[in-house]
Amino acid sequence: MVQRWLSFLLLTLLLSLSGVISVTITLVNLCNYTLWPAAYTTGGNQTLSTTGFVLNSGESSTITVPAGWGGHLWGRTECSLNRTTGDFSCVTGDCFTGRLACDGMERTPPATRVEMTLNGDNNQDNYAISLIDGFNIPMAIIPLRGNCSSSGCRAHVNAVCPSGLKVTKWKERLVVAVACRSVNTCLEDCSYVHAVNILRKACPQARILADDNENTYSCASDTDYYITFCPPLTSESNNTRPGWRRGKTQNKKKDTNLLYWKWIMNARTMHKIVGKWDFMLRRGYSIPHSKPSFFAII
């Protein structure tokens, strides 16, 4: 027994000295529709245990990421299973494996993505929201460390996307925009400079072009992260935690967005929020992404 305990202690010490760590990434769906998040590993890093799953509106899911991982995470929309062929496909963000899991296949543009490189130079994580290959869903990434900056593209870019880049489909007898292609695909009917300016104004924190390195952020390694789909339109870096309290619904959008960003910066508080979502969903309430005032119902 003593020998087994010493062996375990030695293994733990070796792992600690070698810097072997893992972090958690929690994906939160604040959209009012179902998403199918996916992950792609770059640079020969260790593949994640899951590369695709379903995430209903108001739900969250946590994945464990190994040390030194690098890759992309994104959301797929309007996915379905063909009952005749058995093929799984999505309108945007599809990886064309015919299955729920992407299994080493990258997404098909246009799609918003989170780019991450963990435990890189100087023991730093690097992360960014990228529209280099286009946009389909608003996204934000929030490090759970008080001195690190969040980043995001919170605007509904499809609504302001230049006509030459807009991807549309018929839905209930209407033509609706489902994605916005990369500015690098501008042709005769699209002004490149105009398109870049529109996207920079809509999402000033995001990488629009490949050389937008100033919109790549860093944080100390061994940091956990939240990735939010359809986040509120404003951000707040303050990570204080007000906790749950009973009271009347706040009517000021600014106040409710502030409360949201205070909560989301603390993991334990976020678990409480998700628990409350589950409670409300079981009671038949919906959780609309376009009304941040929901977060003040406490």
Rank of each mutant, 00 (worst) to 15 (best):
L81P: 01
V2M: 12
C153Y: 13
I273Q: 08
R241T: 12
N56P: 05
K253Q: 15
A202N: 06
T85I: 03
A267C: 08
T185D: 06
M270C: 07
C153V: 03
N215M: 15
L14G: 06
L259F: 12
P110L: 04
S18M: 11
N122Y: 13
G243R: 13
D133G: 13
L233C: 03
V65C: 03
L118R: 01
A67M: 09
A179L: 09
S16V: 07
L100D: 10
K171W: 15
L199A: 11
E188P: 03
Y40R: 01
T112S: 15
F8R: 09
A111G: 01
C95V: 04
P162Y: 05
L6E: 02
V54I: 07
E78I: 02
S293C: 07
Y226K: 11
N56T: 03
T85Y: 04
A177M: 14
P242N: 06
E214N: 08
I142V: 15
R245T: 15
H271L: 11
Y40F: 15
K276Q: 08
N119D: 14
C102Q: 06
C180K: 01
N123A: 08
T256H: 11
C148P: 02
C90L: 06
M265G: 15
T12A: 05
G152L: 03
P162T: 07
N32L: 04
P231I: 00
V176G: 00
L11T: 09
T240V: 09
N82Q: 11
F229A: 10
R181I: 06
S7H: 01
V114Y: 05
R283V: 00
L15F: 06
R282A: 15
L14T: 09
W36E: 07
P292A: 14
N29F: 11
G275V: 05
V193D: 05
G71Y: 11
V28R: 10
L209P: 02
T34N: 04
N257M: 12
L15P: 02
K252T: 09
F279D: 14
G70Q: 14
C148D: 10
L81V: 12
H289G: 14
N238W: 03
K254R: 12
C230V: 05
L6D: 05
T77L: 01
S235V: 14
F8C: 08
S218L: 12
D94P: 07
R282P: 03
S163W: 02
E59Q: 13
C79I: 13
A38W: 11
E78C: 05
L81Q: 08
S221V: 02
N126F: 13
D133E: 12
L100S: 07
A67R: 07
Y225S: 05
M265C: 14
K276Y: 10
G243H: 08
L165C: 04
V183Q: 10
E106Y: 10
S221P: 00
R282F: 07
C230L: 09
N123P: 01
S149C: 01
R181S: 05
S22H: 13
E188M: 14
E78M: 10
R76C: 10
L6A: 06
R282S: 09
